[in-house]
Design a protein around this nucleic acid. Sequence first.
DNA 1: GAAAATTGATTGATCAGTCAATCAATAAAT
DNA 2: ATTTATTGATTGACTGATCAATCAATTTTC
Lengths: 205, 205
Amino acid sequence: MAPRAGLAENRKRALIGAALLEISERGSLEVTVAQIARRAGVSPALAHHYFGGKDDLILATMRHLLTRFRVDVVARLKSAGTPRERISAILRASFGPEQFDDSTVNTWLTFYTWALSSPGAARLLSVYHRRLRRNLVHAFRDLTGRAEAERIAGALGAYIDGVYLREVLRSGPPDAGAAVAGLEHYVDMELTQAENQKFSGVGAP
Amino acid sequence: MAPRAGLAENRKRALIGAALLEISERGSLEVTVAQIARRAGVSPALAHHYFGGKDDLILATMRHLLTRFRVDVVARLKSAGTPRERISAILRASFGPEQFDDSTVNTWLTFYTWALSSPGAARLLSVYHRRLRRNLVHAFRDLTGRAEAERIAGALGAYIDGVYLREVLRSGPPDAGAAVAGLEHYVDMELTQAENQKFSGVGAP
DNA sequence: GAAAATTGATTGATCAGTCAATCAATAAAT
DNA sequence: ATTTATTGATTGACTGATCAATCAATTTTC
């Protein structure tokens, strides 16, 4: 390569970071490429040069959030010993300080809406859904059996997303503790019930 | 008034209906006044004449959805005898055919996102939240006591919203039965637990 | 004929995307 | 160690299109 190595990556990172800030501040994707570029300290034309178009820049921004979340989940799962701890790890990752702040939550919601009209965005969100579901099913399976694990994973995923959705309308800082407490309570109820059913002979062989 | 009475109301209704269709089809608020007006069979200028501006037209559309939902809930609550039936009535209203179709769900999500940047939209959504919460707390109170009712109403509200949110990414027609079944299951678990706690002496006097 | 309804034409502003032209860093050649 | 060639980085200026909003003029209704 001829010019400085790594410059391009730095610029891309700066543009993605700027996009993240602009989107969360405006609360919508109605941000101009010029605003994002100005914030990143470059010209609007450069954003097109690196990303091809506005949509591609925003998709890259979405991918960035998704990656950050995945890394967070994986790290927390590593230090989880039991299946029950794995469940808690996933919940704590979902509402950890990196994911559950106003800015990030707003941006997620914006992406959800965008998925209504952007196949690319829809695809990325379904990646998130599948990953979350897979992690949850895996953790629940040993505790409840396969079928129940599937059912609970679906319900818990929806519940998590719902808590996120409601956060956008709350005023004041997010209360991650309360959010996790509610979800843990739900998990405990499901597990208690699964345990009871086992003793009444409805469990797996 | 001089010209035909009720004409204005008809026009407004037609414009709101057209806005509803356009928004759900595009999956965003990036619809032009011209598109909405054409669908309603009038000129774009008339939309401004009646509503003042695009935002006001969309707010009116939102209010329309909100009213439709309220009417549905009230009707179903009337034929509910017990508190437990009241809970089911609210759930069945939330996922009844009028509320839980692709078009309506998409539109709700669009409004949620709009609330990030429109105080008017945020206000309307918080009206919905308060009403739902009030109805749920009222139904649960006799079964679980005040404090638990508040907690459960919050959790159930989030869970409901989450199911809506996930519906927008599903393909195929909405499965209201499955949605309600999951929520009823959650309610039953909470009520079972409340019952058990009563017998272990942690209930109300 | 007065009041409301309705429209066509227009305006002013906003943006995404394009392009031709420089700039700067490195590699290659001597 | 210079010089030169190469290539990515970067920009400013421009364009074509889109749209909300306005308003003066016309039609409809009573």
